[in-house]
Amino acid sequence: MLIETRDLSFTYMPGTPFQVEALQSVNMTVARGEFIGIIGETGSGKSTLVQHFNGLLKPTGGEIRVEGKNIWAGEINLRTLRSRIAMLFQFPEHQLFEETVFNDVSFGPRNLGLSGSELTERVRFGLESMGLDFDTYRDRSPFQLSGGEKRRVAMAGILAMRPQVVVLDEPTAGMDPAGRRQFLEQVKRLHREEGLTVILVTHNMEEIALLAEKLFVFNRGKLVLQGSPAEVFKSAAVIRDTGLEIPALSELLQRLSEQGKKVRTDLFSVEEAAAEILQLVREDRS
């Protein structure tokens, strides 16, 4: 197991009138090379959870293990850990600070002690992984890019550290459909081709159902459901109870199946759903 939590709990401001139990006894595992989705309504503890994966928060109860090692028992150097499990926060364009795109993207690798041609290579890899041309962008100011470009530069800065895992906290909020599609396309390609482990936190059910291999559903600090998107969205009642919703296509297929039609309900793409329904109609006719 790459990442494993054992009875992980976290309380903000313990011992004050404002105390919040953000996570309660969470047990979950993430394997190498998986594409994980984390969903749950506002305040359910998603961001708190993922900040434990690279040691940005220290559990107030239980433990978190990476490759079998308890990260808070002094067995792992936290800075090395953070370069391997990289994290992109919501609205990542707000963290840009350097004068040029090159400098900003190289911030992470520089902190790892890289320099010279190796550094340049890393920056090139980062930018080109996000579909940004190295020579066009390297000397531009990150503050004069469009919103979508800024976000990709921020992601490039993460990828330039060559992490094994990327944690993305609502990476596409505020992007237009095309931008969203392209961004996720790049992430999917890295997952497929480079074997990158991806942990995606999102509020977009349609998106996550198509992308993730495994979903974790949170509600008020507790892990309430896990499994493949098909398994998770089958529990429509639980999903709705936690304030989420199921993708429109799943809803349609489930409704059809409730009406006695023999359709698979575990399809999330338009093409697959269409094929399934067309076949159903053909069978009905014959």
């Binding site: 690279n54 953070r82 963290q95 840009l96 600070f97 992470g108 902190n111 790892l112």
Partner: peptide, 29 residues
């Protein structure tokens, strides 16, 4: 602060001048 720490920034060690310089990635954004 956390976002920059996730990129390997270090706000805790070094002498006072180093620390001040290390604050740039926090203060600019």
């Amino acid at each position: 602060r956390k976002a920059q720490m996730a990129r390997g920034a270090d706000f805790e060690s070094g002498n006072i001048f180093r620390r001040a310089r290390n604050l740039v990635p926090l203060l600019v954004p």
